[in-house]
Design a binder for these strands. Structure first.
Lengths: 243, 243
DNA sequence: TAGTGGTCTAGACCACCCT
DNA sequence: GGGTGGTCTAGACCACTAC
């Protein structure tokens, strides 16, 4: 049973300010109230406000100018670089302006492939649960994703699990595990023939392949992921901010 | 003339702790001193230590466990996800374990291409300075990068500028501009024939293309970049941490 | 139970920008 | 000069983990 804890003040302020930017309470290119004003209005300390503003600035969502003020970055407003960011495919599709849908291709327990066993640090006889899904953007196939989890982590049977969940929610719900960090390798390659057919895509065109491993805070590998990403439909866009 | 300001305390602690991780003063997988101990040892407040540790944790360099301690992540130790990260190609090559070198292909003032003018928001008659470079890893061509800067930003002539500088240093030195954030699109494509020749690479193999725009804090576009990235030589690896 | 990281506050001083 | 964000401190309390 998940424990419901009250959300931290920082979390609440975080949600509130992002909502205001999204709802144009603070319009694109416009200025936010000063840190002191926000702190006073919300009844929190300036340090708390600054924690949130620092996060938003790191994602490029706002631009901070010493001696002047804090401004909404109109160029970034529509990009979702938040928690989950590029790793939650449904959300990624949404933030690209499409309606997301998930088609489960297969969902089964099986022996791991050599690459999977190595990535997950599994012994010879351990099994895995493999979730193969196709993510659609406005009905068009955009991402073909395979996620492999050590079977020992699952607390329920494969049949009773919801294959529609984003992978971090899946792990929370069925494994009681929290993803702490992920390592992703990006390559350009060709889609295997059967996959190209599913993506309704010319197999002679190059496609992006993402190879990912997700770990928990104890450095235990939780998921091995292999995703083919059709950038003709979906932009793979990253934002990096400094200072 | 650049103003030399004393480095902030946070900056100094940041450098020190990263150095200690790199030098294995805190060994891979090992535990760091507690926040209070570090604060006392370095003569700063706990909040200052926490600011630095939060940054390192966001890059996956350390793992923090409430009620337990802070540990060096042995899996991430060698990956450079710091400032500059994947955008400083020389550093990227170095952190992949190769000796970096830069070969300047062309460096000239010219009229912008349509895509360049649009990205940089230039009027019809404005010119640009284009810096085309080949980045070598242990002598092997790994990245072919074109960087285009509005000519109006340059404070000196093209001939007297150092083409070996990373792009953010170049802007600091010759334009007095600071990069605040960057937006990058990643695609899989084929290298144009002349470029494949320079990369000594089979033109029928797919390659990664990065299209980037760098902005300053006033949201003014500073640089348009188009880079071809040979992932057969260099891994394009990203680390993302949560919590 | 002791010690750790997580959260939050109140307030000080500084550097910078605008007018 | 007045207001803004940038930096830093000191200290309180809480939640969690190992023992």
């Amino acid at each position: 049973m998940p424990i419901l804890r009250p959300r931290s003040i920082v979390d609440q302020v975080n949600t509130l300010l992002r909502q205001r930017v999204h709802d144009r309470v603070y319009p694109p290119g416009g200025r936010l109230p000063s840190e002191s004003e926000l702190a006073h209005e919300l009844g929190v300390s300036r340090a708390t406000v600054r924690t949130v503003l620092a996060r938003m600035a790191a994602e490029g969502l706002i631009l901070r100018k010493q001696g002047d003020g804090t401004y909404v970055n109109e160029r970034i407003r529509d990009i979702d670089t938040r928690y989950g960011g590029m790793w939650d495919f449904s959300r990624l599709i949404e933030s690209n302006g499409f309606r997301p849908a998930i088609e489960t291709v297969t969902f089964e327990r099986r022996a791991p492939a050599r690459q999977e066993a190595r990535a997950l640090g599994l012994a010879g006889d351990a099994e895995v649960v493999a979730l193969v899904r196709l993510f659609l953007a406005d009905g068009r196939p955009a991402i073909f994703a395979t996620n492999v989890i050590p079977a020992g982590l699952l607390r329920i049977g494969v049949d009773s699990a919801d294959g529609q969940l984003p992978i971090h929610k899946f792990l929370q719900t069925y494994c009681g595990e929290e993803i702490k960090y992920a390592v992703s390798d990006i390559e350009a390659t060709f889609a295997p023939p059967d996959l190209a057919r599913r993506l309704t895509r010319d197999a002679s065109l190059p496609i992006l392949r993402l190879t990912e491993i997700f770990y928990n805070k104890n450095n235990r590998p939780l998921v091995f992921g292999l995703s083919y990403y059709d950038h003709a439909i979906l932009r793979l866009r990253l934002v990096q901010a400094w200072g």
